[in-house]
């Protein structure tokens, strides 16, 4: 199978993720969309690794997964505390950081 097809899939997933980040209001969904984008990147990294015949890309993908896991921990904690204080998981309600 042509590895380029994997790249098409990665691009598709990335676009879906990006659209989700921009469009959805629920913080959990936005968060999942971000994960989708990260995994799209992972997929393309692994694909590149396969195409170039070395393992660098796969190593970076593992790093990304670890970082993503850490991010989930911190991100979910923020979302939970946000929900507690505002009784809502909408990202639009957290628009206080402006001049």
């Amino acid at each position: 199978m042509n590895p380029v097809n994997y790249l098409y899939l990665a691009a598709l997933l990335f676009t879906i993720g990006a659209a989700g980040v921009l469009i959805r209001r629920n913080a959990i969904v936005v968060f999942m969309s971000v994960e989708l984008m990260l995994n799209a990147c992972n997929l393309s990294l692994v694909t590149f690794s396969r195409m170039h015949g070395n393992l660098d890309g796969q190593i970076v993908a593992f790093f990304t997964m670890v970082v993503a896991a850490a991010e989930v921990v911190v991100g979910l904690a923020i979302i939970v505390s946000l929900f507690r204080s505002r009784h809502s998981a909408s990202v639009d309600d957290a628009s206080l950081m402006k001049l």
Partner: peptide, 17 residues
């Protein structure tokens, strides 16, 4: 220019994208 800083995370995301 200050008006661009509206506090909505997705506006910032759009500018990043």
């Amino acid at each position: 220019l200050r008006k661009l800083q509206n506090g909505y995370a997705r506006t910032y995301a759009v500018s990043m994208f």
